[in-house]
């Protein structure tokens, strides 16, 4: 065994008997209490949950909480693009509306042709970082696995750090370059399986200062359609 923590991680993971997180804020049944009394996993989950619900706070924590709240208002409120959860508008019911929609689709299509298509919830980009850095490619659905990442230059930047993660933010690869493109190593390209969404972002730096960031970008290699 290389790392004993792997065995402990497995031993300390939740089991089917463990309380679901949403039960932590509710009155527990007798059976749940009995389980809680003997389960280290559930005891630690409850302790962590109570650290969240507790109103107890040091003055420093209170000040920090208020500062973060103000920062969140600045970064998130009114951001134009965090709307992936919004339902699509209803389809037009009348011919004139359908015609108008068709014109809109054509115009939008011509405009979108200049960009790569974006995924449904890719709209979280460029809305919450202070500086702006435009990612160029890959974005949205792709016909084939990308071979490189590209972005636009930022004035004054001496280096760019890039990162590719899974959608759960597990890091797959990161690197740094002074250019505005970087070739992906073969093992990363191999992980761009059809249908699998990956995230990437790039940050422009001068020394230890971050000048701008692209925010999270998404891409996915399209799943081939049989017969086409």
């Amino acid at each position: 065994m290389n790392d004993p923590r792997d065995a402990w991680r497995e031993a300390l993971a939740a089991t089917p008997d463990c309380l679901a997180l949403e039960r932590l804020g509710e009155p527990l049944t007798a059976a749940e209490r009995e389980h809680l009394d003997t389960c280290a996993r559930c005891q630690s989950e409850l302790a962590l949950f109570q650290s969240f619900t507790s109103d107890e706070a040091t003055p420093e924590e209170t000040r920090a909480g208020a500062w973060v709240a103000a920062e969140l208002h600045r970064r998130l409120d009114g951001a134009a693009n965090v709307t992936a959860f919004e339902p699509r508008r209803r389809a037009p019911r009348f011919a004139w509306a359908a015609a108008a929609a068709a014109v809109f689709v054509i115009v939008a299509g011509l405009w979108m042709e200049k960009r790569e298509p974006s995924l449904g919830d890719a709209g979280v980009t460029n809305v919450y970082r202070t500086g702006r850095l435009d990612a160029v490619a890959p974005l949205g659905d792709l016909a084939a696995a990308p071979r490189e990442l590209r972005w636009n230059a930022v004035a004054g930047a001496t280096a760019y750090t890039v990162e590719i993660t899974e959608v759960d933010r597990t890091l797959l690869w990161h690197s740094e370059t002074s250019a505005t493109r970087i070739v992906l190593p073969p093992n990363v390209v191999a992980q761009c399986a059809p249908g699998k969404t990956l995230l990437w972002d790039v940050a422009a730096r001068r020394g230890s200062d971050e000048l701008a960031s692209s925010g999270v970008q998404r891409f996915r290699v399209a799943v081939p359609v049989p017969g086409r």
Partner: peptide, 13 residues
């Protein structure tokens, strides 16, 4: 926004 301070304070801890 009702939870900005609570989540922010917890993240700070």
């Amino acid at each position: 926004a009702r939870y900005y301070e609570r989540v922010g304070g917890w993240c700070f801890r």
